[in-house]
Amino acid sequence: MSTLPTAVNSAPPPGKRKEIYKYEAAWNIYSMNWSVRPDKRFRLAVGSFVEEYNNKVQIVSLDEETSDFAARSTFDHPYPTTKIMWIPDSKGVFPDLLATSGDYLRVWRAIDTETRLECLLNNNKNSDFCAPLTSFDWNEVDPNLLGTSSIDTTCTIWGLETGQVLGRVHQLVSGHVKTQLIAHDKEVYDIAFSRAGGGRDMFASVGADGSVRMFDLRHLEHSTIIYEDPQHHPLLRLAWNKQDPNYLATMAMDAMEVIILDVRVPCTPVARLNNHKACVNFISWAPHSSCHICTAADDHQALIWDIQQMPRAIEDPILAYTASGEINQVQWSTTQPDWIAIGYNNCLEILRV
Rank of each mutant, 00 (worst) to 15 (best):
residue 23 Y to W: 12
residue 112 D to G: 01
residue 340 I to D: 01
residue 157 I to A: 07
residue 342 I to H: 03
residue 283 I to G: 03
residue 38 P to Q: 11
residue 146 L to V: 10
residue 116 R to I: 15
residue 172 L to N: 15
residue 233 H to S: 14
residue 81 T to D: 09
residue 91 K to H: 09
residue 85 M to W: 06
residue 169 V to R: 14
residue 209 D to S: 13
residue 236 L to N: 00
residue 229 D to N: 15
residue 213 R to T: 04
residue 316 D to F: 14
residue 138 W to L: 03
residue 83 K to Y: 03
residue 211 S to W: 07
residue 1 M to R: 08
residue 180 Q to A: 10
residue 350 I to D: 01
residue 161 E to V: 13
residue 57 V to F: 01
residue 315 E to L: 13
residue 222 H to L: 00
residue 245 P to K: 06
residue 91 K to F: 10
residue 161 E to D: 11
residue 285 W to A: 10
residue 102 G to F: 04
residue 10 S to D: 15
residue 303 L to C: 14
residue 19 E to H: 12
residue 324 S to M: 08
residue 126 N to R: 14
residue 128 D to K: 13
residue 283 I to A: 07
residue 230 P to F: 08
residue 176 H to P: 00
residue 349 E to R: 01
residue 268 T to E: 14
residue 108 W to N: 03
residue 282 F to V: 06
residue 340 I to E: 04
residue 341 A to I: 05
residue 165 V to Y: 12
residue 301 Q to L: 13
residue 3 T to M: 09
residue 307 I to W: 02
residue 181 L to C: 01
residue 328 N to P: 01
residue 252 A to C: 00
residue 81 T to E: 12
residue 7 A to T: 12
residue 138 W to C: 00
residue 223 S to F: 03
residue 13 P to V: 13
residue 6 T to I: 14
residue 307 I to K: 02
residue 38 P to I: 00
residue 56 K to C: 04
residue 82 T to S: 13
residue 199 G to C: 08
residue 106 R to Q: 15
residue 198 G to N: 08
residue 102 G to L: 10
residue 242 K to N: 10
residue 215 F to S: 00
residue 180 Q to S: 14
residue 228 E to T: 15
residue 153 T to Y: 07
residue 152 D to H: 07
residue 131 A to E: 09
residue 5 P to E: 00
residue 289 S to T: 09
residue 152 D to E: 14
residue 300 H to M: 11
residue 317 P to T: 08
residue 206 V to R: 02
residue 270 V to M: 13
residue 304 I to C: 15
residue 20 I to Q: 01
residue 187 E to R: 09
residue 65 E to V: 14
residue 250 T to F: 01
residue 251 M to L: 13
residue 245 P to E: 04
residue 296 A to F: 02
residue 236 L to Y: 07
residue 52 E to R: 12
residue 195 R to D: 11
residue 49 F to L: 00
residue 135 S to Q: 08
residue 221 E to V: 03
residue 183 A to Q: 08
residue 312 R to Q: 12
residue 28 N to G: 03
residue 103 D to H: 11
residue 140 E to N: 09
residue 47 G to N: 11
residue 258 V to D: 05
residue 4 L to A: 12
residue 177 V to Y: 00
residue 337 P to W: 02
residue 345 N to E: 13
residue 18 K to C: 01
residue 156 T to C: 14
residue 144 N to C: 08
residue 238 L to R: 05
residue 331 Q to P: 00
residue 66 T to Y: 05
